[in-house]
């Protein structure tokens, strides 16, 4: 187990290195931050001066090695836009996003798992059909649109929540609900189908045959075996929420989190800040995956590391 975790951490370093280099090369080849940062009427001399100041006139390999050297010290340089250390800015924005994502995931789990279990327990019933259809629709809806509809209805029409902003629970509910729709759909589907599979397994018949209650068969027997699929889907969704889906929703709701920051950063072509963001997202996703893999060992005794 220790050996496995050590290997995985090593693997994480490789992944982060790969992702960082990829993003570095792409942005430096395609992007042109000098044009973004200077006014249109700036002279060539001014452009060259800024280019020199940012170090963008050096050969790409030199820039890359400087960047990698900094990365190992967790130093991504100062944000060009805000003139403070980039990693600091990112870390400052993370809690607001974590709050949003955690709330969304909790909503998704609390709604989807019981409903999925009930649908699997009563397959083919009206409830089952409604659930499988609505969860499919939920997966297909674009979050920013769902967010706008929620704003129109719950904030503008009913006035229950604020249309945007950050601070109270009335700010939190709508964006969290918006963000929870897709993972809720995913989870409901995976719970429904993996639980149905487990309930039809021979061992579930064995358990019922010895007199176990339906409750025990569902929660003590089947759920543990279905858990690996559910946790896998949950981990994937968590990564997806943190890495991308919050961006649109945070912008729609004016949520001052990581997603808004990343949209701003890309628009401004603030390379140091962008690199810090990519680094952090990669680290978080690698650790989510590691946690999911370790949990397999708990749920399924056939998996040992």
């Amino acid at each position: 187990m220790k050996r496995y975790i050590l290997m995985r951490l090593l693997y994480t370093v490789v992944v982060i290195l790969g992702v960082s280099i990829l993003v570095f090369v792409i942005t430096h080849v395609i992007g042109n931050p000098v044009n973004t940062m200077l006014p249109l009427q700036a002279t060539d001399a001014e452009r060259a001066a800024l280019k020199h100041q940012l170090g963008l006139d050096k050969p790409l390999m030199v820039q890359l090695s400087e960047f990698l050297g900094g990365m190992f010290r967790l130093d991504f340089g100062k944000s060009w836009w805000q003139q403070v250390p980039a990693l600091g800015i990112v870390l400052h924005k993370i809690p607001a996003t974590l709050q949003l994502v955690a709330t969304a995931l909790v909503i998704a789990v609390v709604v989807a798992i019981p409903l999925g279990i009930i649908a699997a327990y009563k397959p083919g019933t009206l409830l089952d059909r409604i659930l499988t259809t609505t969860s499919l629709i939920g997966i297909c809806l674009p979050p920013f649109w769902v967010g706008l509809m929620f704003v129109l209805f719950f904030a503008v029409k009913l006035g229950w929540f604020y249309t945007s902003g950050y601070g109270t629970i009335r700010h939190l509910i709508l964006p969290a609900l918006t963000l929870s729709v897709v993972p809720m759909g995913h989870l409901a589907q995976i719970v429904r189908f993996s639980m149905a599979e487990q309930l039809n397994a021979q061992y579930s018949i064995t358990a019922r045959a010895k007199g176990a209650s339906d409750f025990a068969v569902l929660f003590a027997h089947a759920l543990k075996n279905a858990a690996t699929s559910i946790v896998t889907m949950g981990g994937m969704d968590l990564g997806r929420l943190l890495a991308g889906e919050t961006a649109a929703v945070e912008v729609v709701f004016g949520w001052p989190g990581f997603g808004t920051l990343i949209v701003d950063t890309i628009g401004r072509q603030d390379f140091p800040l962008l690199q810090a963001e990519v680094f952090l997202v990669a680290v978080i996703i690698c650790f989510i995956n590691l946690a999911v893999d370790i949990s397999y060992g708990y749920f399924d005794p056939r998996i040992r590391y």
Binding site: Q202, I205, T206, A207, N225, R302
Partner: peptide, 19 residues
């Protein structure tokens, strides 16, 4: 079920809960 009539299924491989 159980106390009155108990059942041994035909597939021992899949008839026990793997977890």
């Amino acid at each position: 079920r159980g106390k009155g009539i108990a059942l041994i299924l035909q597939e021992p491989m899949s008839s026990l809960n793997p977890s």
